[in-house]
Amino acid sequence: MPLSPLDIHNKEFGRRLRGYDEDEVNEFLDQIIKDYEAMIRENKDLQNQLLVIQEKLGHFTNIEETLSKTIIVAQEAADELKNNAKKEAQLIVKEAEKNADRIINESLSKSRKVALEVEELKKQAAIYRARFRALVETQLDLLNTDSWETLETREPRELEA
């Protein structure tokens, strides 16, 4: 067990003939007591500082662990968000491709339908022109026939009968 300042203060030395000077020894012991007390106070202060520093270290260690966990969680959340964004982007692209294919197919279908309608109209126009030409030619033939001359010479009553 270490000495205390009180142990040093109460220490008595035996007397002998031709011993040390008692006042000088007492002064030296008083100086040792003062120094020893100062060292004990300094040691206690250092121990208290050590405890405070250890508490701070523990606090900062907890903060570090919390920050590490937070960073890990944030990284995982960012990765998940990134993956979800990629999936959503792929779905959007697929949907856009489907819509584009649908629009193209509808356009081709309408184009074919219009082309068929145009062809049908061309056929009907050709038929109409052919009939109209035939009608006009028939009328011209009728005008060019001699029967017109006989119709001109007849009286109106003859025509009614």
Rank of each mutant, 00 (worst) to 15 (best):
R16H: 03
L108D: 11
E24W: 10
I53N: 11
N48Y: 07
N84M: 02
L17H: 08
L159I: 15
L142A: 07
A130G: 03
M39G: 08
P156H: 09
W148I: 15
E158F: 06
K113L: 02
L91Y: 07
G19E: 06
Q31I: 06
I92D: 01
F13P: 00
A161K: 13
R16P: 01
V93I: 09
D21E: 13
I71E: 10
Q124L: 13
L91Q: 08
K69I: 00
H59Y: 08
L143Y: 09
E65T: 09
E22V: 02
E27L: 15
T66L: 09
A161S: 11
G58R: 01
N26P: 00
G19H: 10
I103N: 05
L50P: 00
Y128G: 02
E80I: 01
E22C: 00
R41M: 06
A74I: 06
V73I: 05
L91V: 02
L67T: 15
E22G: 00
K44R: 13
N83W: 07
A125M: 08
F132E: 15
L81Q: 09
A161Q: 13
L46S: 08
N48W: 03
E137G: 08
Y36L: 07
E149T: 04
E95N: 14
A100P: 00
I71Q: 10
L50E: 14
Y36M: 04
S68K: 14
K11Y: 08
A77R: 13
Q54E: 15
E155L: 06
T145C: 15
E119G: 05
N62A: 12
E42S: 13
Y20P: 02
V52E: 01
K123G: 01
R16F: 04
I92W: 10
E155N: 12
D79C: 03
Q139H: 09
I72A: 12
I40D: 01
L81M: 05
A77I: 11
Y128K: 08
L67Y: 14
H59W: 03
L116S: 13
E76R: 14
R154H: 07
K56C: 03
I40S: 02
K34E: 13
E152H: 07
D21H: 12
R41Y: 03
T145I: 07
R16S: 03
D7T: 02
R131M: 10
N10I: 00
N144W: 01
D23V: 14
K113C: 03
E55V: 08
S4A: 05
S109N: 11
K98H: 05
D146A: 05
A74V: 06
R41H: 07
P5C: 01
E120C: 07
D21K: 02
L57W: 11
N48I: 06
T61E: 12
I63L: 13
L135I: 09
D35K: 11
A134P: 03
L143R: 06
E55F: 11
N48A: 11
A161T: 14
Q31E: 11
T61I: 07
S4H: 05
T70Y: 10
L46D: 07
I92C: 03
D7P: 00
G19F: 10
A96M: 04
E119P: 05
I72G: 04
F13C: 00
N84L: 01
N105D: 08
E160F: 12
R154E: 10
